[in-house]
Write a protein that binds this DNA or RNA. Sequence first.
DNA 1: TTGTAAGCGTTATCAA
DNA 2: TTGATAACGCTTACAA
Lengths: 350, 350
Amino acid sequence: MKQKRTTIYDIAKALNIHATYVSKALNEHSNISQEMIDKVKKKAAELKYRHNSSAANFRASYSKTCGVIVPKINESFFSNAIAGIEEVCAQNGHHLIICQSLESYTKEVEAIETLIRQNVDCIIISLSLETKNSNHLQEVLANGITLIQFDRYDESILSYIVKNDNREAAGRAVKHLLDQRYRRIAYIGGPEHLRIYIERKQGFIDTIREAQISIPYEYTCNISLRREESRKIALELLNGPNPPDAFFTASDFAALGVMQAAKDLNIPVPGKLGIFGFQNEEFTQYLTPTLSTVDQKSMELGALSARLYFSNLQNKEETGTSGNYKTEVVKCSLITNQSSVRSSKDPSQS
Amino acid sequence: MKQKRTTIYDIAKALNIHATYVSKALNEHSNISQEMIDKVKKKAAELKYRHNSSAANFRASYSKTCGVIVPKINESFFSNAIAGIEEVCAQNGHHLIICQSLESYTKEVEAIETLIRQNVDCIIISLSLETKNSNHLQEVLANGITLIQFDRYDESILSYIVKNDNREAAGRAVKHLLDQRYRRIAYIGGPEHLRIYIERKQGFIDTIREAQISIPYEYTCNISLRREESRKIALELLNGPNPPDAFFTASDFAALGVMQAAKDLNIPVPGKLGIFGFQNEEFTQYLTPTLSTVDQKSMELGALSARLYFSNLQNKEETGTSGNYKTEVVKCSLITNQSSVRSSKDPSQS
DNA sequence: TTGTAAGCGTTATCAA
DNA sequence: TTGATAACGCTTACAA
């Protein structure tokens, strides 16, 4: 159906030279007269020739394409990360094939399959919440494809990892809450088969311990971090015999649930309840009160992931050896908004 | 560097049959004994064979890939649209190559070039604000690639168009403001080389006229719809001799600017000033007051764009003819939030 | 400086 | 039922 596109053969025929030579001319190989180059290029333009990357890539057996798998494209953390990846890839003449796992392990496995079939040069992934098994990641490596995990990673896999200083950042957030005279701080965390949630929780626990405060058993929980689920948990705790006076959550969506719960119960934030999220989703700045959160630098996280691939690539070309896998850490910054900053009049509870 | 992947030749060698036959067996052609199919598949699994789509696609001269170009991946309207596109494409065994124009005409042209080179089967695009010229879109068609424009489209190009009922939706929004007893309604619109901004403005003007109200000259403007720019304009109008009592804007970001201006001037919203946006960006629901907006059904817009491609594809296969280009219209729904709903106590100004 | 051959992995087509 | 050939468009290596 599609009309045939112009190929180097068409140009060759028109100029009475060999196709190979056209290819060389277009690529400006040395040993080609400038005259010829100009002639070929002119004819190419005339015939509206376009380099067929898919043919060239096929021959060279690479695709100049990076596969990206994220749980959800339309979640600002991920769309920012993708924006960062896209920019770096574009700068390096690579393209992006994007898949979403929708937090499903099965879909994630399918996406990996697809990308391997597609012959992508590297796969940049942030794992779904459901992913507990890493055979599919092993497959990526077995196919000689560079694997880069960002944010939600599996430590048991030999790959590049780009992550935040989760433990430290969580610690700083909790420290901030303590400084604001909150004392009964609850933690809402994520599924702990994912390392980042262990790290964030650890930051929480360590910091509380350092302050020589004990944490009631029910003050820490691990959930799937959805808004509604978090709201329910917050309601339970706040209605309980020993309500917390602050929440630190491993996700802004969970924090949103807490905020909702506070509204349900008419508890003033930050006066009687401090809230600190994690992720720096776009909406945090629009809430009333604005939500304090940990800025994960999502765009930078994405960009760094891509850069890691390209620097490794360059290294490979120059030295013939692939660099060692390494873990890069992007330092989070705290965004202390209204939800966690008390005025001096606000009472500390005890 | 990359170790060679298993091909059908490897399987053929292992089984002492011809590669062609392996291909047929894997594709379960008729005339192949079930026994053979099983044998081949078993060996394929054993050797960890993976179909090389890029080789197959190259041979078939299609790529089973859709190119997507949006101004900004990380703007919820677009990331939702992409999510919709992705889902439909995945269902149909197609992949997505995603580019962002960052609202730059030059980048958009480059992206088109890239996608043509990549041999994508279709291009789904929402134009950059800078795009006034459509030669690059013409090129897409000239290369036999299906073109689908959504939201920000150029009417002069023969392509599929997926858009909202912009004029009607704008009319309904303005009608709502009138019903809420706002009378001096200003309009902040976008660059009018893009049809959608003409349409939205027309909806505004028509509705105001129908109500037999006259619109002061300075009440309508066309800008690039950025928050700061809009805020400045709103400040000017609100500080002017004849301040508006409501704003209808062609974008939520512009509405955000207006809201900011109202805060700057301590004008109560919605009491003294009504605001109605357009786009249904995620943040609108988190503002205080929540922002009324026109829900463009971004995910549906994206999904429909993709579906249009696949139904055309099917049609082509079945009848051998490509269907006529058509324009699909997605009906917006009004989300009337707090920013435009007055209590009965609020005075109408005159 | 220019030309030729070969091959990347797949599959449609024709032959046995 | 199985095998062989050729082709998709490009580029690398080598020959002239």
